[in-house]
Amino acid sequence: MLLTGNYSSTIQLMLAMLKSKFSLKQLGSVSTFLGIQVQHTKTGLFLHQQPYARELLHKSGFASCKPAPTPMAPKPTSSSNGADLFHNPSLYRKLAGSLMYLTITRPDIAFATNHICQYMHQPTNQHY
């Protein structure tokens, strides 16, 4: 469990209440939590998943691709009629799930991620 907030007195009160019921370990300042990197700034916390995103690009074979200004084509072709089925549907599903987890810190890819998840039952090369 991760407790954070702007009011240290409230956090300390919550910790005291939890300690009265449970055995706790306080590990201090957080730097990584569930694969999410936490950077402390003057104005608060900045959450990102840059290492996770890089690993995902390598696993999918897209590490050397150029960045795009948008996560998907403006007019995606949603028809899969006549398209070749993707050779490894399990890989497609893993990558789609990984992209869903990435949307925690990257809401800008949520629409495109939802779009590819609609084809998990029978992904094509075009969808990949």
Rank of each mutant, 00 (worst) to 15 (best):
Q50C: 09
Q50R: 14
Q50L: 07
Q50M: 05
P51M: 04
P51F: 03
Y52D: 00
Y52R: 03
A53I: 07
A53F: 04
A53Y: 04
R54Y: 07
R54I: 02
E55H: 03
L57R: 05
L57G: 01
H58E: 10
H58T: 01
K59D: 15
K59C: 13
S60F: 07
S60V: 00
S60E: 13
S60G: 10
G61I: 00
G61N: 05
F62C: 09
F62V: 04
F62H: 13
F62G: 03
A63K: 00
S64K: 15
S64W: 02
S64Q: 14
C65E: 06
K66H: 12
K66D: 08
A68H: 10
P69N: 11
P69H: 03
P69C: 08
T70A: 11
T70Q: 11
T70L: 13
P71C: 09
P71T: 07
M72W: 07
M72D: 12
M72I: 11
M72C: 12
M72G: 11
M72V: 11
M72F: 11
M72A: 11
M72K: 02
A73C: 13
A73W: 06
A73G: 08
A73Q: 14
P74T: 08
K75I: 14
P76R: 06
P76K: 08
T77D: 15
S78H: 09
S78Q: 10
S78I: 09
S79G: 12
S79W: 04
S79R: 07
S80E: 15
S80F: 05
S80W: 03
S80M: 09
N81G: 02
N81K: 13
G82E: 03
G82C: 06
G82M: 05
G82Q: 02
A83W: 01
A83M: 09
A83K: 15
L85W: 00
L85V: 02
F86K: 00
F86G: 02
F86R: 00
F86W: 01
H87D: 14
H87A: 07
H87I: 01
H87C: 01
H87F: 00
N88I: 02
P89H: 02
P89R: 01
S90C: 04
L91Q: 15
Y92D: 05
Y92F: 13
R93G: 04
R93M: 02
R93H: 12
K94A: 11
L95E: 06
L95H: 14
A96C: 08
A96W: 04
G97K: 05
G97D: 06
S98F: 01
S98I: 02
S98E: 14
L99D: 11
M100N: 15
Y101S: 11
Y101G: 10
Y101E: 08
L102P: 07
L102Q: 07
L102Y: 08
T103R: 06
T103H: 03
I104C: 10
I104L: 14
I104N: 15
T105W: 02
T105G: 01
R106A: 07
